[in-house]
């Protein structure tokens, strides 16, 4: 694997871990403290104002937080191991993290599509005023940022499936 890509993945993994920790901690706190102050503070600190909405839309969902943390730590551990040229305890974690990131990305795209159907095709009242920007959440944005990692992992997966790993 290219060194630049590994370094990029390590940097990305830290962002995954940061957003994951925020989602998990603030999400749990929010269950017991219904006040808006905390979510609002996190929203404004962790997302960018694009005029018509903020991106990424922070979900503050503990489940999302857990998933981001799992992906982040897999990529981080895998990236550090890959720098040392390890397959087991290195590239294997990188591959597992990439697969999970891909599943999360596909899921978020499906949810975006489902909400689009609710709004524009079924015209459900709860979705009035919904814009696709609302679903550009941390899972989807970080998933998109992980595309270079995903494509490198996909190539590696294909080669491993064909020949397996050959070790001297």
């Amino acid at each position: 694997m290219k060194r630049a890509l590994i370094l990029y993945s390590i940097l990305l993994s830290l962002i995954f871990i940061f957003y994951g920790s925020m989602d998990l901690l603030c999400g749990i706190v929010r269950w017991f403290m219904p006040a808006r102050a905390l979510p609002d503070l996190v929203q404004t600190s962790l997302s960018f104002d694009l005029g018509r909405g903020r991106v990424p839309a922070i979900t503050l969902d503990p489940g999302m937080g857990l998933s981001l943390l799992v992906i982040g730590f897999s990529l981080l551990y895998g990236g550090l191991g890959s720098l040392k040229g390890k397959l087991k305890g290195g590239e294997s974690f990188f591959l597992a993290g990439s697969i999970l990131a891909l599943i999360l990305l596909v899921l978020q795209v499906l949810i975006l599509f489902a909400n689009g159907v609710e709004t524009y095709a079924l015209r459900i009242e709860d979705f009035s005023g919904w814009t696709p920007l609302e679903d550009l959440n941390e899972g989807l944005v970080l998933g998109l940022l992980a595309i270079p990692t995903l494509s490198s992992s996909a190539k590696r997966l294909r080669s491993l499936r064909k020949t397996g790993y050959q070790k001297d």
């Binding site: 397959l87 087991k88 305890g89 591959l95 790993y165 050959q166």
Partner: peptide, 12 residues
């Protein structure tokens, strides 16, 4: 010695 794709993913 070969390691299959399954061995690699299972490691994680």
């Amino acid at each position: 010695v070969e390691l299959t794709l399954t061995d690699v993913i299972d490691d994680a």
